[in-house]
Write a protein that binds this DNA or RNA. Structure first.
Lengths: 130, 130
DNA sequence: ATAAACCTTAGAGTCTACTCTAAGTCAAGC
DNA sequence: GCTTGACTTAGAGTAGACTCTAAGGTTTAT
């Protein structure tokens, strides 16, 4: 059977427009069509889209994801370079997590300040700088 | 004394262009000028810019950061709403961290697959799907 | 058989966040 | 006094990722 574009869209919280855009950009060369020309997604296709969303949501540009898909199409001779891509990308994800942690500290510090400012009686409130 | 725009740019890994853009967008209403019209940044200004970068780097749009700066300019009567903004934004940062963790799992799984594919002898390599 | 609800395409438009250009001012060093 | 290298502005241009429109095809329900 398979899934229609809007079923897939719903599943991944995308729009059908976005999926067609990804297809146009070369991210979905594996998706087959029905006799009438409609895209028909298989469960395997969903796995591919899940991976594409993972890469996209961790900041990889569409062009680089496309590059990866192209490497996949070239078969085993690109295994090593694909693996290296994931090693590199993993590093970037770890960096993002570190950065988020640092920024969370700043936000928590700010929240402490606001907790103070908001709890003391109005007439003794400090004037916030800026 | 204070800092020039390019000194600040270097400090925050931005360009002078970007800082002027932020100023134009209303993010830096507090920055003073020298007699000749050049921006002169104080240490307090750097703290503000650090916070702005924190918000920006955790995905807050420029417009919302501008809104926050405007609330700051309005003084104590906006303390509660500003605090609420940080509470809401903190939640979003935690969500981002959760999402990153999930995506890291997917990447690590993929890396395991590639470790296998890349280590077995060439003539027995599985053909990767797609 | 006709309307509703899907799907298709090419291509134009939008939004965000820069990024750059052109033309000009000012201060310091040779 | 003139060049170099800061800085200034307004405004145009760009990149990335959608987002939408127009025109049309197919399937299903009444």
């Amino acid at each position: 059977m398979g899934y229609t574009i809007s079923q897939v869209a719903k599943k991944f919280d995308l729009t059908a427009h976005t999926i067609r855009y990804y297809d146009k950009e070369g991210l979905l060369p594996f998706v087959d069509r029905s006799k009438t020309g409609n895209r028909e997604f298989t469960d395997d296709d969903l796995d591919w889209i899940k991976l594409i969303c993972c890469l996209k949501n961790t900041g990889m540009p569409i062009k680089q994801i496309k590059q990866y898909i192209e490497w996949c199409l070239l078969g085993d001779k690109t295994l090593e370079i694909r693996r290296q891509m994931f090693i590199d990308h993993r590093k970037e994800v770890l960096k993002q997590m570190e950065d988020l942690k640092e920024n969370l500290k700043t936000i928590d510090h700010k929240l402490k300040c606001y907790a103070k400012s908001c709890n003391i009686s109005p007439n003794t409130r400090q004037v916030h700088s800026l």
